[in-house]
């Protein structure tokens, strides 16, 4: 397996697809997370997939699956933001569910509110129909470990 740092540098330079970075994480593969890059802008995608259904009668997505998707999106996002990539560890993750997640593709985008030396604060928003109508918003803190990736 390529060193994480090498992989990140290759992703940044466009040599390697961002998807390779996502697919390194078993849980991200379990959820089937995809990443779409438009220049430097990254949109994460949680494809429509039977395995992420929560309520079968509606059917609606499982809130936990959406949360896991958003947390993973944030982790990848920070990795790419840092000059010297260090593996982020989740300190806390807070999510607000605004609308029902329908059984369809879900998108997420992240913004780093503050990237400190040790702690990163990230805002994540997930939507289905359009960005202006998020189904969930989340806020998370990550500890940026001492050891370089």
């Amino acid at each position: 397996m390529k060193a994480l740092k090498t992989l990140i540098e290759e992703c940044r330079s466009g040599e390697t697809d961002y998807q390779e970075l996502v697919d390194r994480v078993p849980y991200a593969r379990f959820l089937g997370i995809k990443v779409v890059a438009q220049g430097d802008e990254l949109t994460f995608v949680l494809p429509k997939n039977d395995n992420v259904i929560g309520n079968p009668t509606l059917p609606a997505l499982h809130g936990g699956a959406v949360a896991g998707f958003m947390e993973q999106a944030a982790i990848i996002f920070i990795l790419l933001q840092m000059g010297e990539p260090r593996v982020p560890k989740t300190i806390d993750f807070t999510i607000d569910y605004l609308r029902a997640g329908h059984f369809r593709e879900t998108y997420a985008e992240c913004s780093v509110t503050r990237l400190g030396r040790r702690i990163a604060n990230v805002h994540i928003s997930a939507w289905q129909k359009n960005r202006q109508e998020p189904i969930t918003i989340a806020r998370a803190h990550f500890l940026l470990s001492e050891d370089n990736a």
Binding site: M1, R24, V25, P26, Y27, F30, L31, H62, G63, G64, A65, A67, G68, F69, E71, Q72, I75, V87, T90, F93
Partner: peptide, 17 residues
Amino acid sequence: LVGNPENGMMHGGAIFA
């Protein structure tokens, strides 16, 4: 369900779910 392939730790998202 692993989040960090280097240490085999379970992903926070799986625990959350």
